[in-house]
Design a protein around this nucleic acid. Structure first.
Length: 289
DNA sequence: CTTATGACCTGATAGC
DNA sequence: TGCTATCAGGTCATAA
């Protein structure tokens, strides 16, 4: 998504912003989790979202990603840093809409560029959202300091150290964004298959060689996924509307009941940490490592 | 502190 | 056709 946005959004000047749903936007003054995402804590009237907080009047200079979070960085006037953090959740998307064309369904926030085209944040299920940032420090300290290293470039020693500190199943640890940032349910299953690690084994019981192998497999599946434009199960489209092509290359995810591509055994479907999990019981033997 | 669990949402699909 | 149940790519608050 970052790459597909960069090609047309960087350098663009934002003329105005329209917020159709206040609760997908979290201001620094809103409750930590976000105003709309915890009904029990919706108290009082939320502060109004100002256009400038969502880059109105700014020129986009950069798109920075860490894990699953994307920061649209801009400048308004000399030296004035602006930034909006985006998380797509499960069904969120950012899309480019030409002048005169219709926005997608669930268009919660719409930026109109000086060129007349629009950037639209849409999210049917609303697990995603936007976070405004008062300065670069807020991005680094309030948001990104809570994330583990970005999975695309994670080094083996770092992963070894981090996995040694948790007794959870390895799959649950890989999905914890504070341990490692950027691996979701699909790529966790794919990486574990490639590394021949059973998703249910305790993270702190994996030996060093196995974790080193796993680090390489995490980087590999993400690199492959990005090169293929992502995994489209149903909803995902990049900002130009293109679906990803990686799902047809999944080795285990979504293939429970089908034959393992490596050994022919039936891929098993189960649940680890409340998440749908697929693995090959022969290639990913819980005893082996 | 760490870990487990339910809640948050909507839409697609399967089964009756 | 229309109803209900089930499931989904992620995270957060809360309880244990």
């Amino acid at each position: 998504m970052r790459r597909s946005l960069a090609s047309w959004l960087v350098g663009a000047r934002i003329a105005r912003v329209r917020v159709n749903r206040r609760d997908v936007v979290t201001l620094p003054s809103d409750p930590a989790g976000g105003y709309g995402r915890n009904p029990g804590k919706r108290v009082g009237t939320p502060a109004r979202v100002r256009g400038a907080d969502l880059l109105s009047g700014a020129t986009v200079t950069e798109l920075r990603r860490r894990g699953k979070q994307l920061c649209i960085v801009g400048r308004s006037g000399p030296g004035a840093w602006r930034g909006v953090l985006v998380h797509l959740g499960m069904t969120g998307g950012l899309s480019r809409v030409a002048r005169g064309h219709q926005s997608p369904a669930h268009a919660h926030v719409v930026w109109t560029l000086e060129s007349g085209e629009r950037l639209v944040f849409a999210d049917a299920r609303r697990f995603g959202g936007l976070w405004t940032l008062e300065d670069e420090g807020a991005l680094m300290w309030r948001h990104w300091s809570r994330l583990g290293p970005d999975a695309l470039g994670v080094r083996a020693p770092e992963l070894v150290r981090r996995l040694a500190r948790t007794s959870r199943p390895i799959k649950a640890a890989l999905l914890d964004q504070g341990v490692l940032a950027g691996v979701g349910n699909i790529y966790a299953d794919e990486a574990l298959f490639l590394a021949r690690v059973h998703p249910g084994v305790r993270a702190d019981e994996l030996d060093g060689d196995t974790v080193r192998r796993l680090a390489g497999c995490v980087r590999r599946v993400l690199r492959e996924g990005i090169e293929a434009g992502g995994s489209t199960l149903r909803d995902f489209r990049d900002s130009m509307g293109q679906p990803g092509r990686y799902a047809k290359r999944h080795r285990v995810y979504g293939r429970a009941g089908e034959a393992c591509r490596r050994c022919g055994t039936t891929i098993e479907g189960t649940s680890v940490g409340q998440r749908t999990t697929a693995f090959c019981p022969v290639c990913q033997d819980a005893g082996g490592a």
